[in-house]
């Protein structure tokens, strides 16, 4: 039976990735697993005769909500690995026990219930849902609209950082820099003119010494810069063939 097969597929597609919530270490992996769960659930909805919800599930959850999660994850630092070692005494075991107890309890209750499945073949096609939404549930729809606007404004308020000092203009910034004794002219660009102008190669002064400032500090920290020695050697010994001199 197609439905049976579908159910088992969905079951594996949801339960296995959702376990990542408990055991995975990298938040990005978890988020991707949840995306999988959402897609599985969307398949389940379609299988249960609710194609509209299936589509909405994909669009809202997979497309919007989970992407927002990922976005926030990037914002707060994707590297925030979590140590799974529990810090609160007893939290782990009581938490597991409580969750498993809840699952057992729910399954036991559901198993006890015998219901007459009345499969009337009602398909949750978008038209019927739309009719219901905008007739019987129109008030709820409007209230939900308010809720969404409120949530949007709330998010704006929560993430807004009020400016405490007046904004400094570019002129003021430049003056301040000169006052502080900085070099008024531009820093030298990276790269060796006519030979190698990649960003990771420091510029050389007329005497052939490396100008440290010409390379982005980030690259330096990542040890992704070249020291330019081979090009200097090439300058000193024109006979030798350069690496990229093809």
């Amino acid at each position: 039976m197609v439905n049976e097969v579908l159910f088992w597929i969905v079951a594996f597609l949801t339960v296995i990735p959702s376990l990542a919530l408990l055991f995975a270490k990298r938040p990005v992996h978890i988020a991707m697993s949840i995306v999988t769960v959402m897609v599985g659930l969307a398949a389940a909805y379609v299988g249960l005769g609710a194609p509209f919800l299936g589509v909405v599930q994909i669009v809202v959850y997979t497309g919007a909500v989970m992407m927002m999660f990922l976005f926030v994850l990037m914002l707060v630092g994707v590297d925030q690995r979590e140590d799974l070692k529990e810090t609160i005494k007893g939290q782990k075991w009581i938490g597991f026990a409580g969750s498993i107890g809840l699952a057992i309890l729910l399954i036991a209750v559901i198993g006890k219930v015998t219901m007459e499945p009345r499969i009337t073949g009602v398909e949750g096609n978008p038209e019927e849902i739309a009719l219901q939404l905008f007739s019987e549930y129109v008030l709820v729809m409007e209230v939900l609209g308010f809720l969404l606007i409120t949530a949007a404004v709330g998010a704006l308020v929560l993430t807004h950082v009020p400016r405490l000092t007046p904004r400094r203009t570019q002129v003021e910034l430049a003056e301040a820099r000169v006052l502080a004794g900085a070099n008024p002219v531009n820093k030298p660009m990276p790269g060796v003119y006519a030979r190698h102008n990649a960003l990771d190669v420091p510029a050389l002064d007329p005497e052939g010494n490396v100008i440290e400032d010409s390379v982005s500090r980030v690259l330096e920290i990542r040890h992704q810069t070249q020291d330019g020695a081979e090009f200097r050697a090439h300058l000193e010994n024109p006979e030798q063939k350069g690496g990229d001199d093809k």
Binding site: S18, S99, L106, G111
Partner: peptide, 10 residues
């Protein structure tokens, strides 16, 4: 039942 399990995991 699947929903119950997912809920517990959550």
């Amino acid at each position: 039942i699947l929903a119950a399990i997912l809920f517990s995991i959550g």
